[in-house]
């Protein structure tokens, strides 16, 4: 609980929510809050995977492309007569495969994560364009149900988001692997000297990030029920922004899944949702979300400063 209150994004989220609650009576209704969660779930799931990578002081710029390649594979298979669930499974397999390749390139070849995933951002999107022949594809209605179906009154995307968050929190906080991720993120060389399998940790971290990207992609795909050549573009930035708003450091060793990623992902969607409710000029959306992200980052840096210590 103390964690929650020391997270500046929480205060920013509370302020944003207060403003919209004052401006629109619909904002604080249960239905609308569920909507915010549904809208946050895709980016939130991707951001959870990203948090693992950020914890090791890495970065994965390719998640948007992974979402697209998965969707393209799924679209082609389903369009070719496969059942919807087989397409979904194939999509989910694409993510870890990409993640594995990143992990191997980073650990075996010694390349920096930024550059590896920057180049694979292009290569994977290129593969996706090749697979889809650069065409848009519509998906059958079965797929859409994945996004709208409710279990115990809660929509499936929110379930998925919740499960991913809880599982990840548990992995980071309670398992051996999770503690090793933090150690590697603080100082990889020291972790190696301490006898940890640093390469193994890194490979698994990118694997997890790839898997989350594919799952987040699946959720987004179900909501759109169409694959366009721009699907997933720039999602890497949304995911990184959500993770960092949630307290992850780009320099590794610091970050958390709960409440961090949840708050980070929800903050951005709350802004969109609230602006929509108060009928704001759609052109103003990016300006205002940019401003809110900036404020949250500013609040975080001020907090670090107040906590003292030289940078």
């Amino acid at each position: 609980m103390r964690d929650l209150l020391t997270l500046p994004a929480v205060w920013v989220l509370a302020a944003v929510a207060a403003v919209f609650a004052a401006l629109s009576p619909q904002f604080l209704t249960a239905g609308n809050l569920i909507n915010v969660l549904i809208q946050s779930s895709a980016v939130g799931i991707v951001a959870t995977g990203m948090t693992f990578v950020l914890l090791t002081a890495g970065i994965d710029l390719s998640v948007g492309s992974v979402m697209f390649l998965g969707a393209a594979v799924c679209g082609v298979l389903v369009g070719g007569g496969w059942p919807w669930w087989a397409g979904a499974v194939a999509m989910l397999a694409v993510g870890p495969a990409c993640g594995l390749l990143h992990g191997l390139a980073i650990t075996r070849l010694g390349l920096t994560p930024f550059v590896v995933t920057l180049s694979s951002l292009f290569v994977i999107r290129g593969l996706g364009l090749w697979v889809s022949r650069t065409r848009a594809m519509n998906l059958p209605d079965d797929f859409r149900q994945l996004a709208t179906e409710r279990v115990l009154g809660v929509p499936v995307p929110v379930w998925l988001f919740g499960v991913v968050l809880l599982a990840s929190q548990w992995v980071v906080g309670r398992t051996r692997f999770g503690r090793h991720v933090l150690a590697v993120g603080h100082d990889a060389a020291a972790a190696r000297k301490a006898g940890l399998d640093v390469g193994g940790v890194l490979v698994r971290v990118y694997l997890i990030c790839g898997a989350c990207a594919a799952l987040g992609g699946l959720v987004a795909l179900a909501q759109l029920s169409a694959v366009s050549p721009t699907f997933g573009r720039d999602r890497e930035f949304d995911a990184i922004a959500a993770a960092v708003l949630g307290g992850a450091s780009l320099f590794g060793g610091r970050g958390n899944v709960l409440p961090g990623v949840l708050v980070g992902a929800v903050t951005i969607q709350t802004v969109y949702n609230g602006l929509n409710l108060i009928d704001a000029d759609p052109y103003s959306y990016p300006v205002i979300t940019g401003g809110v992200v900036f404020l949250a980052v500013l609040a975080d840096s001020l907090r670090n400063r107040l906590r003292g210590g030289r940078p």
Partner: peptide
């Protein structure tokens, strides 16, 4: 203000382009 460049420029790019 010691803010991370990655996020600052990401946020302003959204605001400026928007």
């Amino acid at each position: 203000l010691r803010m991370p460049a990655f996020l600052v420029t990401l946020a302003t790019s959204s605001a400026v382009a928007g």
